[in-house]
């Protein structure tokens, strides 16, 4: 199945696949954000592939590499019993890939988590809001430059007071 899907994808999108990675029996296709939607549509609707289930959307911060972020889409074919991973590098988190809500309604919900904790915006997803964190939270904690602890937590009411005594360079 790994090879069948690779062959089909190469045939349908000859330019789109930047890299194919095999690690521990898992196949990853590295693609760019512009091709995400047509590739997913193809993977979902092709009768021999039928990747009809999106298991997970998960963001990864690769700091200090460039592009800094990467999104992993774990797609599952229930009829053919197979999993693949699409990996989409994201250089600018404000200009993230398009939402997959038109293919799988659950994608909206999964993308909300990614935005809240990693701060990657999905084009066309209008529900991006604070989900786990309080509504007035600033920053995205899963980013590598977000400190884990030993740091005063800034809420909106004491943001400036704490900011004034923080030891980093101010502009």
């Amino acid at each position: 199945m790994n090879d069948a899907v690779a062959k089909k994808l190469q045939a349908a999108f000859p330019e789109a696949i930047a890299e194919v990675i095999d690690f521990r029996g898992e196949r990853t296709f590295v693609i760019d954000a512009g091709n995400l939607l047509p590739i997913c549509q193809f993977l979902r609707d092709d009768p021999e592939l039928r990747y009809n289930f999106v298991s997970d959307i998960c963001a990864d911060d690769m700091l200090p590499a460039y592009p800094r972020f990467a999104l992993n889409y774990h797609l599952r074919s229930i009829p053919h019993n197979h999993v693949i991973r699409l990996r989409v590098p994201v250089a600018d988190p404000e200009q993230g890939p398009p939402t997959l809500a038109s293919l799988w309604p659950v994608a909206t919900w999964l993308e909300m988590e990614v935005w809240d904790l990693m701060g990657i915006r999905f084009a066309g997803n209008n529900s991006l809001r604070r989900l786990f964190l309080p509504g007035d939270w600033v920053g995205h904690p899963l980013r590598k430059d977000y400190p884990l602890g030993y740091e005063e937590v800034q809420f909106s009411f004491n943001w400036e007071a704490i900011d004034a005594r923080k030891p980093y360079a101010k502009d």
Binding site: F23, R24, E26, T28, S55, D56, D60, H74, R85
Partner: peptide, 20 residues
């Protein structure tokens, strides 16, 4: 170095762990 995704059938459904 590398990343894996492993899922199991937990009592509630698919419990997956992505690990890099």
């Amino acid at each position: 170095t590398g990343y894996v995704y492993q899922s199991i059938e937990s009592p509630r459904g698919e419990f997956g762990c992505y690990l890099r």
